[in-house]
Amino acid sequence: KVTYHVPNEEFARKLYKKAVDANLNVEIRVENGQFIIHIE
């Protein structure tokens, strides 16, 4: 399980798409202006 803290929405979207394309379980949320992405 990996967690990324991404300040940039564009990068967060790319990361999310890559994980989904790889059939990984992804959860994304915004906290204090940062995008928190959990990948399992």
Score class of each variant (00 low, 15 high):
Ala22Asp: 05
Phe35Asp: 00
Ala22Tyr: 11
Asp21Met: 11
Glu40Met: 13
Ile28Trp: 05
Asn8Thr: 09
Asn8Arg: 01
Asn32Pro: 01
Val6Asp: 10
Glu27Pro: 00
Ile37Ser: 00
Val6Arg: 02
Glu40Trp: 15
Val20Leu: 13
Lys17Asn: 09
Val6Tyr: 09
Ala19Leu: 15
Glu9Cys: 15
His38Leu: 15
Phe11Trp: 14
Glu40Phe: 14
Val30Glu: 11
Val20Trp: 06
Thr3Met: 07
Arg13Gln: 07
Val6Gln: 03
Asn25Ile: 13
Tyr4Val: 13
Leu15Met: 06
Val30Ile: 13
Tyr16Ser: 03
Leu15Gly: 01
Glu10Lys: 03
Arg29Asn: 04
His38Pro: 00
Thr3Trp: 09
Ala22Thr: 03
His5Lys: 10
Asn32Lys: 04
Val30Asp: 02
Val26Asn: 00
Phe35Arg: 00
Thr3Gly: 04
Ala19Lys: 01
Asn25Ser: 12
Val20Pro: 01
Gln34Trp: 14
Glu9His: 04
His5Trp: 14
Asn32Thr: 03
Glu9Ile: 12
Lys1Val: 09
Ala22Met: 12
Arg13Thr: 04
Ile39Lys: 00
Ala12Met: 10
Ile36Tyr: 08
Arg13Trp: 11
Asn25Thr: 12
Gln34Lys: 08
Asn8Phe: 14
Asp21Tyr: 08
Tyr4Leu: 14
Ile37Phe: 02
Ala22Pro: 01
Arg29Ala: 04
Val26Pro: 02
Ile37Tyr: 01
Ala22Gly: 07
Phe11Leu: 14
Tyr16Glu: 06
Gln34Pro: 01
Val6Glu: 05
Glu9Val: 04
Asn32Ile: 08
Ile28Cys: 15
Asp21Trp: 07
Ala19Ile: 11
Lys17Ala: 11
Arg13Asp: 08
Lys17Asp: 13
Thr3Tyr: 07
Ala12Ser: 01
His5Asn: 09
Ala19Thr: 02
Asn23Pro: 01
Lys1Gly: 14
Ile39His: 01
Glu31Pro: 01
Val20Gly: 02
Ile36Leu: 04
Glu27Lys: 08
Val26Met: 03
Gly33Arg: 01
Gly33Ala: 02
Arg13Gly: 03
Glu40Thr: 13
Phe11His: 08
Leu15Asn: 03
Glu31Met: 07
Ile28Thr: 00
Asn25Asp: 08
Ile39Asn: 00
Ile39Thr: 01
Glu31Phe: 06
Phe35Ile: 10
Lys14Glu: 14
Glu40Asp: 10
His38Gln: 13
Gly33Leu: 04
Ala19Pro: 01
Lys18Trp: 15
Asn23Ser: 07
Leu24Arg: 02
Ala19Ser: 02
Lys14Arg: 10
Pro7His: 13
Glu9Thr: 02
Glu27Tyr: 09
Glu27Leu: 08
Ile28Pro: 00
Ile36Gly: 01
Ile39Tyr: 02
Glu27Thr: 14
Leu15Cys: 15
Gln34Asp: 03
Val20Glu: 03
Glu10His: 05
Val20Tyr: 06
Val2Gln: 08
Pro7Arg: 12
Lys1Phe: 11
Phe11Asn: 05
Phe11Thr: 14
Gln34Tyr: 13
Val2Thr: 07
Asn32His: 07
Glu27Met: 07
His5Gly: 03
Phe35Leu: 08
Gln34Leu: 12
Lys18Leu: 14
Ile37Glu: 00
Asp21Lys: 09
Ala19Gln: 02
Asn32Glu: 05
Asn8Lys: 02
Arg29Phe: 11
His5Thr: 11
